[in-house]
Computed example of a mutant assay.
Amino acid sequence: QSSKFMNGPPQVVCRTKHLICATTAQCESLLHHYATTKSLSKTKQLHAHTITSGLLSSHHSTHPSLLATTYALCGHLSYARKLFDELPQRTLFLCNIMIRMYTQNGLSYNAIQLFVEMLASGHLRPDRYTFPFVIKACGDLSLLQLGVSVHCLTITSGVYSDTFVGNSLLAMYTSCGEKERARRVFNTMQERSVVSWNTMISGYFQNGCAKEALLIFSKMMNAGVEPDSATIVSVLPACGYLKDLKCGREVHDLVEQKGLGSKISVRNALVDMYAKCGSMDEARLVFDKMDQRDVVTWTTMINGCILNGDMRSALGFCPMMQLEGIRPNSVTVASLLSACASLYYLKHGKCLHGWAIRQKLESDVIVETALIDMYAKCNCVQLSFRVFTKTS
């Protein structure tokens, strides 16, 4: 049903600068193109043209539902909803687009509200494109009972066996802390994709079941399912948490064998795993071989040094990070401040305080707490109290 929006730019006769002579068909073709390329400014310009030229009138085929769809896919949800509410009759396709975009933009309540309106209308029957995003919205809001009700609807609607619906149920149940319900869904799935396995691995780990997460990963490998980068990022935290260096090295070998190390998130996860397993030499080897490093990479190395009691090396990464032009986040600064506190390095701590001010991170709660602690441990109670008073 979404092929018009997923097959790339269509061949169009007119361009935006020639809108004065655009026909209805050409305007619709442009709208499909703008929906695909998410061109909000051009959508607004074309919308203005359809109004002034009368192409939106009842005598022409350009329908407001197409404009609403384009606005939604461009991320302008407030105006998309305005057009949506003015439609005499809503289509399932447009409802699905609105629900999906609401969920993807963090407006989960709006997604659920629209889903309820769909059901109440009586003439729109949700399908396999509707349920995954409604279920995700339930999980995002931790609405377990509503999620269970929607689960029941997937059964009565005949879409329960769809893999995407099943994967969304797995994610919803694990995010709500219901790992056993997730397992029951997983066990009854007719087809399990790599996403299904990844969701179970990460879901079990996030619910405090690291050993079970590794067991699921082992079953995945035995089942012959090809892992992807998300699999690696899901399983390595469990290795690190359990300090299972042997398993972590095996996963690292898998990364090299399968060529999964191109993503920075995978390399960051490897650095973090080795650091938590106490093998900073191996963490540094991965770090040094990285072509690209982000703030997570540097913060992970800094935290790894601190975790393993090497405060001086942690502080040594600070000037290196600055030379590479990486902007710190609040976790980076707080970690470096904790190293200063452990070493009673007041001068370094004051420099970091100035750095935090320049980076506009001083008012972050994590940084403020670290500053208070650092000044107090460096026997500068007055400065510690000053930060505390400013915080209060």
Rank of each mutant, 00 (worst) to 15 (best):
A111M: 10
I135H: 01
F115G: 00
S108V: 02
L143Q: 08
C152L: 02
S149G: 08
G106R: 10
L124A: 06
D127L: 06
T154L: 04
S142D: 02
H151W: 03
E117H: 09
A111G: 03
I135S: 06
F131D: 03
R128C: 12
L143G: 01
N110Y: 13
T130R: 05
Y109Q: 14
D127F: 08
L146C: 05
L107M: 13
Y102S: 04
L144P: 00
P126N: 11
S149R: 14
R125Y: 13
E117T: 11
G106V: 08
D127T: 10
A111L: 09
Y129W: 05
F131Y: 14
T103G: 00
L153A: 05
V150A: 01
G147I: 01
S149E: 15
A120L: 13
L144Q: 03
V134N: 07
T130I: 04
M101D: 03
Y102K: 06
S108I: 04
G139V: 10
S149P: 00
S149M: 15
L107H: 05
S108Q: 04
Q145T: 00
A137W: 04
T130S: 08
L144V: 12
G147P: 11
G106C: 08
I135K: 09
L141F: 05
L107E: 15
R128V: 04
F133W: 13
M101S: 09
L114I: 07
C152T: 14
D140Y: 01
L144K: 13
D140Q: 15
L146W: 07
Y129Q: 08
A137F: 07
T130D: 01
N105R: 13
L119E: 12
L114P: 01
V134C: 06
H123V: 13
P126H: 05
F131Q: 08
L146E: 08
M101F: 05
N110Q: 13
L119F: 03
T130P: 01
Y129C: 06
A111E: 01
A120M: 08
S149Q: 14
Q113R: 10
Q113L: 12
F115K: 11
L143H: 04
L153N: 06
G106N: 14
G122C: 01
C138H: 02
R128F: 10
H123E: 15
A120V: 12
Q145L: 11
G139L: 07
A111V: 11
Q113C: 09
N110T: 06
N110F: 09
L114S: 01
S108E: 11
L146I: 13
Q104I: 06
G106Q: 12
F131E: 05
Y109R: 10
F131N: 00
M101Q: 15
D140A: 10
H123W: 15
Y109P: 00
L153I: 03
P132I: 05
F131C: 01
R128L: 12
Y129D: 12
A111F: 09
V134D: 05
E117I: 04
Y102F: 15
A120P: 00
S121V: 14
C138W: 00
Q113A: 07
Y109N: 15
S142C: 08
H151G: 08
P126S: 07
M118I: 12
Q145R: 11
F133K: 08
R100M: 12
